[in-house]
């Protein structure tokens, strides 16, 4: 997180236990018995189990890949001297938005029904973007308070990193 520049920065990421490697080994651990079973039957001539095993492993692989990818989702809010920079998305393909710092505001809109969580927005003038959809209501509230604090600071002097 510490990149050398002294602007306050907040990183938001979903909770994920997987690393790419962990998911790979999980996949291997599932593949071996499944292919072992299907292969053993195929050797005895009952080969129609194999395609179903393959199909299942393809779905499992896809599920793991999607999950690993989702775990890499990041939202970064950096408070520069003139602008607030928001980067969000996956590594390498992040979209970037910036708002003029003096006009930037953070607010929470309530969910469409009481059962739904609220939505946190950061924006200035007519544009805004949603942040922290992957946090709990409580954490969203505290994040919102923190963002308001930071938007009110005249010039950033401290480095702040919050990983949630």
């Amino acid at each position: 997180m510490s990149t050398g520049d002294s602007a306050p920065r907040i990183v938001i990421r979903p909770n994920s236990n997987f690393t790419g490697r962990g998911a790979f080994w999980l996949f291997v651990a599932m593949t071996l018995p499944v292919l072992g079973i299907a292969g053993a039957w195929a050797l005895r001539g009952y080969w129609l189990i194999l395609p179903f095993a393959g199909l299942e492993l393809a779905v499992l692989g896809a599920a793991l890949a999607i999950t690993v990818r989702r775990g890499r989702y990041r939202e970064t809010v950096r408070f520069g001297k003139r602008h607030v920079h928001v980067r969000r998305g996956y590594a390498g393909r992040q979209e970037h938005v910036e708002f003029p710092r003096p006009w930037t505001r953070a607010w929470i809109e309530p969910g469409a029904s009481p059962a739904l969580p609220g939505r946190l927005f950061l924006g200035a003038g007519g544009t805004s973007c949603e942040l922290a959809a992957c946090l709990t209501e409580e954490e969203r509230q505290s994040l919102c308070r923190r963002l308001r604090e930071l938007t009110r600071l005249p010039v950033a002097t401290e480095e702040k990193g919050a990983t949630v």
Partner: peptide
């Protein structure tokens, strides 16, 4: 640009 949400 503005209101894309992380839908999943």
């Amino acid at each position: 640009m503005s209101d894309t949400t992380h839908e999943e």
